[in-house]
Write a protein that binds this DNA or RNA. Sequence first.
RNA 1: UCCUCAAUAGCUCAUUUGGUAGAGCAUCUGACUGUUAAUCAGAAGGUAGCUGGUUCGAGUCCAGCUUGAGGAGCCA
Length: 457
Amino acid sequence: MKKYYIKDIYDIYKKLINKKIIIKGWIKYYRNSIFIDINDGTTIKNLQVIIKNKKFLVKEKEINIGIPIKVIGKLVYQKKNINNIEIIPNYIKIYKGYDLNYINNSILQNKYHKLSKLREEVYLRFRTNIFSTIMRIRSLLFFEIHNFFNKNKYILINTPIINKNNAEGAGEVFKITSLGDSNNLTSKDLFNNEGKLTVSGQLELESAMYGLAKVYTFGPVFRADNSNTFKHLSEFWMLESEIMYYKLKDIINLSIKLIKYLFKKILYKCKNELNYLEEYHNKHNRFKKLKERLTKIINNKFIIISYTKIIKLLKKVDNNIINWGDDIGSNHEKIIFNKIFNMSLPIVIYNFPKCIKPFYMNINTDSDTTKSIDILLPDIGEIIGGSEREISYKKLLKRIKNNNMNVKDLNWYLNLRKLGKISHSGFGLGVDRLIQFITGINNIRDVVPFPIYPGHI
RNA sequence: UCCUCAAUAGCUCAUUUGGUAGAGCAUCUGACUGUUAAUCAGAAGGUAGCUGGUUCGAGUCCAGCUUGAGGAGCCA
């Protein structure tokens, strides 16, 4: 007699029919005095136990939703059951130690809760159908990201989470110290009060690129901006890649290839999860055709358009909403997706003005624009930012000085250019936002296990 | 950080202009051998987010705070 996980039972159930097995999990539903649904976290599906002789096995009062249970019994084929199989038990054990009052007053009561309600009990929401489904998709996505780069012979570089660069100008930076309140004690601090939580691994990643040619980094990054929106977190996961001898068009192709690869894998491997999510959205009047949307993106070419052209198109809609040189904001994104290109495909915008892009991006011969891309997704907005990097020591130095940045701190980065003119390009992808898009979940805080954002730690 | 809106039972909500609160689900008690968030009958459950103010009287009006939602800015 062997213990099985419920996912495994569904995968190989034909081999287990009429065999005696052990399962352990928690009671998900209890119906009609005789049906107990058990879930063990390995799959969204429950396994139904049918008690034909209830007095013999367990007292009805002991059966409560949410409490841990062990069942030994025969797995039988049952046509009447929508899952085709169920267990006829010989033995049921309820594990003690639970607090029913606590469970029934928490988000775990047998009831629909809004996602913002689940967020009030972050440490319990893994037990819910909706959140466990999102976590399964997230897990697979992380795995497939590594798979993609591994298959394509990229080297994973673990760039540091603590560093001293705030070079990107990518918003506010968290300072770290070993001294508590230590503004006047810099020399006693472990990092001389220079330690920061990284906002991007890109600069370090470029140094690894000079030795390993095709590299990527995938880890948490931190922003101290006080931004409270559906798509911002203080701590989020970013995937960044840097490739030797790549030009802008290579980066565009690689980004598209990656997105299509990931969507394909999710579609193929997370069918149950996507079905559940569509059902979930429909039940609450947010009709989202997740699978159709992913399939469409896999099977179609992305729209590729220059910044200058998109500005012209935006000005055609309303001459006053934007000028050349302005960054594309979320109001502009809405117009782009709803009025200009009325289709739910990603849009690649290239050649942004240098005034709105960081110092390390290579400048085009027009001297006004950079060799840069952003990829926008419907509903979510910017998901990828990338560029060809500046490879001239002199030009890079000039731009660092013009941006009033600390040359001394960036010396190591500048010196990489002394290895010779090696063109290279890279991009960064906000992974949590990608999960938002895949799952159709509105708020980024609901696709992250432990969301960290202003006022919430 | 700014703007708008909201906060009533464990949950989702209702309480027509100010007169101390109701329903569904959950819970509890009972019934039920083919149900998919079962169903039926009954019971219990509330200092209306917090702190002040106006008023004979505040869930309702006003102010501040807290929390949440939507939008803006910044960005991934």
